[in-house]
Write a protein that binds this DNA or RNA. Sequence first.
DNA 1: ATAAAATGTTATCAATGATAACAATAGTAA
DNA 2: TTACTATTGTTATCATTGATAACATTTTAT
Lengths: 233, 233
Amino acid sequence: MTKTRRERIRAATINEIKEIARQQMGESGAGALSLRAISREMGMSSPALYRYFASRDDLVTALLVDVYTAFADALEMARDGRLQGDHIGRFTAVACAYRDWAVASPQEYALIFGVPIPGYKAPSDVTSPIAARSMIVFLDVLVNAEKAGKADFSDSYVAITPAVAAQLQPWVDKLQFDGDIEILYTAMSNWSLMHGLVSLEIFGHFDLCITDVSSGELYRTEVAALAKRLSIQ
Amino acid sequence: MTKTRRERIRAATINEIKEIARQQMGESGAGALSLRAISREMGMSSPALYRYFASRDDLVTALLVDVYTAFADALEMARDGRLQGDHIGRFTAVACAYRDWAVASPQEYALIFGVPIPGYKAPSDVTSPIAARSMIVFLDVLVNAEKAGKADFSDSYVAITPAVAAQLQPWVDKLQFDGDIEILYTAMSNWSLMHGLVSLEIFGHFDLCITDVSSGELYRTEVAALAKRLSIQ
DNA sequence: ATAAAATGTTATCAATGATAACAATAGTAA
DNA sequence: TTACTATTGTTATCATTGATAACATTTTAT
């Protein structure tokens, strides 16, 4: 924590760059990030930015990490806002926080879950662990509900074929997961539905069939249906 | 159909442009489309392209229309590959064709269902009708199954709140839809799950929790679960 | 054949990411 | 204090992109 003066200034500059970058991203999307525009807004020459980020992609990666973290934080906060034994409360809270965060920060959501930026490949060794965090929050809710006997994953139980179970195995290993594999499957399935609903909404693909989806009523209806299907109590 | 020689040549040139564009898009994504690169590959100077497309966005819109159409064609073909009375066969075929097409043409899928390209806004008056086509194929399968008494949407029936029903109303009007609104809701919900599964897969967001998702086994399992839930026969 | 329309070309502009060469500044050691 | 070094910043430059203007060529129709 005891940083030199120089290190503090450097960190502040990096923060300023990322802050302006996120602001620009919020306006036009991560794909439209412009190093020159950032430097201009900072009153700096553009090559100076390269002292802090070796390339545009490096800046994007840094943003990616921050955004992933903020997203996982939001989910965790939603979960911890409900009592530990309130499984359906936690399930609903996390699922709704998922959408709330995405609606509030569509470009950020697009950055982590959307189409990869042209020519940009996220370094998975950096992003994988952080990406897992948000998934784990959701998984955790299901696991605890199951441990308490307050959920029923029998629907998944009949669905999972051996081949699918095998596909999920590495995920089990990586997490050192000791619960039933049906929980993992259910988490993945529910997550997919949530992602589908949210991404169709925030990228405007619902516009042609649904008006004013912004209330979130439809999403909440779906979440309730999920909870009911899992018999979460 | 009796076009002049000039019109034929012009159409051929436009086709060549779009063909190269789609090829480039397949390599690096629609966001990375370069008019100059296209003209270079055609052995033409870049300003000549502007005789055919007023701007890069115009070209993207043209591609968008083509891709939407190809997608809807694929779904229709999958549906019509099964007998009219084979409702579960049609349901499964359309759902699987959805993924098959997306996996075979991820960049095309990204163009129509992904994050909007930075700075590009699809003219909804052009895209809306075409976008509806693919959705209608799927809806059609559900409607016919319900008419034949070979499906049960009671799950949705209990879920839909009046507010949600109101949100779906414009969609009902636009389609002059005379079936139960539960069918629309179910179509939307299933579509969202399919989109979620497919987009997470082809954009690589499953990589960290599932290995070799490419077999499609997992997707087919989900489709089977959907069919079961709707009691489609 | 001649005028007009369509199509193509070169030259040019502003913007971008990126690098090289160089200048200024801050921190450190004599 | 002074001199050295690492850090940070600058200007100049390059290749690339989308886009437009001005001009040349080709094709079609009168």
